[in-house]
Design a binder for these strands. Structure first.
Length: 527
DNA sequence: GCGGATCAG
DNA sequence: ATGGCTGATCCGC
């Protein structure tokens, strides 16, 4: 099931300020209309630029957003959701996916009954209305939650024929991951609904790539992921900050802005409890052209001084490339993150992020990128996420796609990181349930090499130290390497250190047949 | 890997 | 004349 709060920011504001009920108002940039006035009059969707809305509706009252308030309310809503699926997945501040299979089985109720009850409970406890979609997978549920909005629900039967009929008439754009661009490109080849995909299938892979084709095929068939997991179990991949300003020119001004940006990024990295080994500089010219340039740093950093120090040459080079450039935006982003958090022996080397399977995830995220067509772990009753053994609909899949048995796809729908607030908080306990078992005081031993707390257990602790020592050695070697011979073009067959590191990295991973090559293991990461 | 581009909220 | 910010993925090279 997918739940979506109705005009969330506006709804929360309305609780505080009932006098707004009669006036058209919006929060922040987007037009969010509990008042419905702007929406009805101008037929706009919830995401309209504030200044555009103001032009259309001069009486519009724009409120300054108060994210602390919205987050607090979101937690209230989530506390209710937790009673229906403790492992629900927050997709953003006002959206979530729930698997209510167990809830329904345990109580002998239908999904529609459970969801109706959940929506009633949310409304009673939080005074916020939510809409919900009930369907066989996340992709369908997301679409369905928009059908009877606001304050409604829609169930799409878990039936092949019903689903195929539903998809046949569904405009591609309704599917999460199909944006403006792809919509237009598809329309250009006669594909406007998901049903149209079938007729044009012979062209699609060539035109849009295998990933997009697999994604579109999944759209036609109504396939999507069925796994739902708490947002905090997803691995964060980057932390960045950027800001827009009036026209900015000149090296001195650039440096000042860069310094400020680095300061901001340090704060964000601190909050995210991580540091990064790759630094990406982004600029937008006054002409709105966007450029990014990245640099790999010798080690992961988080301090503003270090960020600035490494970004400055990148900026200088950009200035050289484009003399006299005038900026309207500057941003810095760290990727190849290394956690600076407390936990956990296994996660330490980035081998296996806590949940134990993220290393297995691969592409297929949210964007159009979210074109991942195949799916997560197969759960019970999840045959719709599986490619049929034979292709009854006549798709001829490239082998690699058809055979993909593992893999996650990671979801074509909203990324769990998008939350308008950065931190990803753990799911709250169910509302109305007692605080069972206060989290026992955990004990940690600090590793003498990396300084990170480890579980206070002798055997894993010693194993960690072994690992840490070898890792430290490799890191130092690589760094020395990088410093001593920067311009040397790597010759084939030389770098035994890399080989060693790669072998090292495999440790702690689940065993894999010796000849099976996992392309995802290519990356080297040092923390 | 890098850089550009698309997408979502 | 549809903006700004954060984060993710995919493609071509």
């Amino acid at each position: 099931m997918h739940v979506d709060c109705d005009a969330f920011y506006a709804a929360v504001e309305l609780l505080d300020r009932p006098e707004l009920a009669d006036v058209p108002f919006a929060v922040g940039g987007g037009v969010l209309t509990t008042c419905n006035y702007v929406a009805r009059t101008f037929g706009c969707r919830s995401g309209m630029a504030g200044f555009v809305a103001k032009k259309l509706c001069p009486a519009l009252v724009l409120l300054r957003p108060d994210f602390a308030k919205y987050n607090a309310k979101a937690q209230e809503v989530r506390a209710v959701l937790a009673a229906y699926d403790a492992r629900f997945e927050s997709a953003s501040i006002d959206e979530a996916y729930l698997n209510v299979t167990e809830y329904c089985a345990a109580r002998g109720v239908t999904p529609a009954e459970a969801v109706a009850r959940m929506r009633r409970e949310v409304a009673e406890r939080t005074r916020v209305t939510v809409s919900a979609g009930i369907a066989a997978n996340a992709k369908l549920a997301k679409i369905c939650s928009n059908i009877n909005k606001p304050d409604g629900q829609f169930e799409l039967a878990n039936d092949r024929t019903v689903i195929l009929d539903f998809m046949r008439a569904l405009p591609c754009r309704k599917v999460n991951g199909v944006g403006r661009v792809l919509e237009r490109e598809l329309a250009a080849v006669g594909v406007e609904t998901c049903g149209d995909v079938y007729g044009q299938r012979q062209y699609l892979a060539r035109l849009f790539g295998d990933k997009a084709f697999a994604f579109l095929a999944a759209c036609h068939l109504g396939l999507g992921r069925t796994r739902v997991q708490p947002a905090e179990e997803y691995e964060r991949k980057s932390v960045g900050t950027e800001s827009t300003f009036g026209a900015l020119a000149g090296p001195a001004a650039f440096r000042a802005k860069l310094r400020w940006t680095a300061d901001e990024l340090e704060k964000d990295l601190r909050r995210a409890e991580c540091k990064g080994r790759t630094l990406v500089l982004k600029v937008k010219l006054h002409t709105f052209e966007v450029y990014t340039r990245q640099v790999v740093m010798p080690c992961a950093v988080w301090r503003a001084d270090d960020l600035y120090h490494h970004a400055l040459p990148v900026l200088a080079k950009l200035e050289q490339e484009m003399p006299g450039m005038v900026l309207r935006l500057m941003g810095l982003r760290c990727t190849h993150l290394v956690s600076t958090k407390k936990p956990d022996t296994r996660a330490f080397f980035g081998f296996r992020p806590r949940r134990g399977d993220s290393a297995e995830r691969e592409g297929g995220g949210s964007g159009e990128g979210g074109l991942g067509a195949s799916d997560d772990e197969r759960g019970p009753g999840s045959e719709w996420e599986r490619w049929p053994e034979t292709e009854p609909d006549g798709y001829e899949l490239p082998d690699e796609l058809a055979e993909r048995e593992e893999d996650s796809g990671g979801g074509e729908d909203a990324s769990p990181y998008r939350r308008h607030g950065k931190e990803i908080t753990a799911n709250p306990k169910a509302a109305g349930t007692k605080e069972d078992g206060a989290a026992e005081e955990e004990e940690w031993w600090d590793c003498p090499i990396c300084g990170r707390p480890q579980t206070a257990d002798e055997k894993p602790f010693n194993e960690h130290i072994d690992l840490c020592l070898s890792r430290q050695t490799i890191r130092e070697a690589v760094q020395k390497d990088a410093l001593e011979q920067p311009p040397v073009v790597p010759r084939a067959g030389t770098p035994e250190r890399k080989t060693a590191a790669r072998a090292e990295k495999k440790r702690g991973r689940p065993p894999r047949p010796p000849d099976a090559v996992d392309p995802r293991q290519k990356k080297l990461r040092f923390g």
